[in-house]
Simulated assay, not measured.
Amino acid sequence: MWKKPHTLEELQAACTSTLVQTLGIEFTAVGEDYIEGRMPVDERTMQPMGLLHGGASAALAETLGGAGAYLCVEEGTICVGLEINANHIRPARRGWVIGRATRLHQGRTTQVWNIMIRDEQDQLICVSRLTVAVRPSVQR
């Protein structure tokens, strides 16, 4: 499934000085057909009522789905988000949330990814779907 070589260290290094680093998102596993990561529930990712911000969940989902999509395409190709949705099932108040992204569809010009986000007790926090466009990379 993966067409690009990858290590967790390489994925993390690619996110230096980005939103991913700012939110404390960490890649934790790349399996045969999934990619996983985690994000802290802390002052960076909470909304004023002391709960995990829905936008932070969406950022984790897009990070994982986007990284998976990127690893599934040939060199010289990029993936950019077209649409993301997120259903927030239950609140998270502290600790970590863990996301797992799996590919639902890979076409010539689009991919669709499913991302399930759970807390450390394995309770479902958020279900998200990400659609990405697959395009040739543009040299700057």
Rank of each mutant, 00 (worst) to 15 (best):
T7Y: 03
A14W: 04
A14F: 02
T16L: 13
V20W: 05
V20S: 08
Q21G: 02
L23Q: 07
E32D: 15
E36W: 02
R38N: 07
M39G: 07
D42K: 02
D42L: 02
D42Q: 02
E43K: 08
E43W: 04
T45I: 06
Q47R: 15
P48F: 13
P48R: 11
G55T: 09
A61G: 03
E62K: 08
G66F: 04
G66R: 07
G68L: 14
A69N: 03
V73H: 02
G76C: 04
V80R: 09
V80T: 15
E83S: 09
E83A: 11
A86D: 00
H88Y: 04
I89S: 03
R90A: 15
R90N: 11
P91M: 10
P91A: 09
R93W: 05
R93Q: 13
W96C: 03
G99F: 06
T102P: 05
R103M: 15
L104R: 13
G107T: 11
T109W: 06
T109E: 12
T110N: 10
T110D: 03
N114R: 14
I117F: 01
E120S: 12
Q121L: 14
Q123S: 13
L124Y: 10
L124W: 09
I125Y: 01
I125W: 01
V127L: 13
R129K: 15
L130F: 15
L130D: 01
T131V: 06
R135W: 02
